[in-house]
């Protein structure tokens, strides 16, 4: 009973299932790349964190494919991505805020930093926010993003590769140490294998877990008139802290 929690309240990430920090051919990773890391003493600051509830978002926030209900849809293949957020013990993470953004069907972001000359789409919302339910489930609707040529970072930097279609995701889990910023890709895209960002995760299984799964249509999921193509994607956040850290 006197068993004491040590300061290691969560497992460090396994480097094989995380991308390398420096990527030759992606200059910003070389400019922004500490060589050394110091020991982290886990405290209440890591096992607690900001909390969000379903009240933080509206139903409109779950639809990136149009500006508002009743408005025309953006061009592109209508899709729904749904799945669960779990902790590393496989338990659902409820009330997890997920921020979502991606390029339009032509591969253009709604952002002043995107220099791409490809067309904008005024009907594309391009960003969304959802909060997981008690079972850790989430779902959002959007149009399938296009791939895009990676913009040169600065004059003289030629990066020169195409990013496969992907959706950016930012997750706030149950604690500050579980913060996750990731991307999700689409199955079968030939650009997936050549992507410098996805490709720099050493472990193949970890790479594959960033690729959404196509869900075949069934009578139960194709009822809607504008039935989208369905994809499923689960994510796992680090840490479970049912036992408060050395504290009560």
């Amino acid at each position: 009973m006197a068993k004491r929690k040590t300061t290691k309240a969560f497992k460090p990430y396994d480097d094989r299932s995380q991308p390398t920090r420096s990527i030759k051919g992606y200059p910003n990773t070389l400019r922004r790349s500490p060589a050394k890391f110091y020991p982290r003493v886990v405290s209440l600051a890591d096992v607690t964190g900001p909390r969000f509830t379903a009240a933080a978002v509206t139903a409109d926030d779950a639809d990136l494919s149009r500006q508002a209900p009743g408005q025309p849809r953006a061009l592109g293949q209508l899709i729904t991505v749904s799945g669960r957020v779990l902790d590393d013990a496989g338990k659902p993470v409820p009330d997890c805020l997920i921020e979502i953004w991606h390029a339009n069907a032509s591969g253009k972001y709604i952002h002043h930093n995107d220099p791409s000359p490809v067309p904008e789409d005024r009907n594309f919302r391009g960003r969304g926010r959802v909060v997981t339910d008690a079972q850790g489930r989430y779902s959002y609707r959007t149009v399938k993003p296009g791939g895009y040529a990676v913009p040169d970072d600065r004059p003289g930097d030629t990066i020169g590769w195409w990013r496969p279609p992907h959706i950016h995701l930012s997750l706030f889990g149950a604690n500050f140490a579980a913060r996750l910023v990731t991307q999700v890709f689409f199955p079968g895209d030939p650009l997936n294998d050549a992507d410098l960002i996805l490709g720099r995760i050493p472990d193949k299984a970890a790479r594959e877990r960033l690729i959404a799964r196509y869900v075949p249509r069934t009578t139960s999921n194709s009822a809607e008139g504008d039935a989208p193509l369905l994809f499923s994607h689960d994510m796992v956040l680090r840490g479970r802290f049912e036992t408060p850290f050395e504290n009560r």
């Binding site: 396994d14 996750l180 995760i201």
Partner: peptide, 18 residues
């Protein structure tokens, strides 16, 4: 499946509205 999901860069296009 319960290995924590891999991080990826946030990129240069994080929505300003966020």
């Amino acid at each position: 499946r319960f290995v924590p999901t891999a991080h990826q860069t946030v990129g240069p296009f994080f929505p300003v509205q966020f």
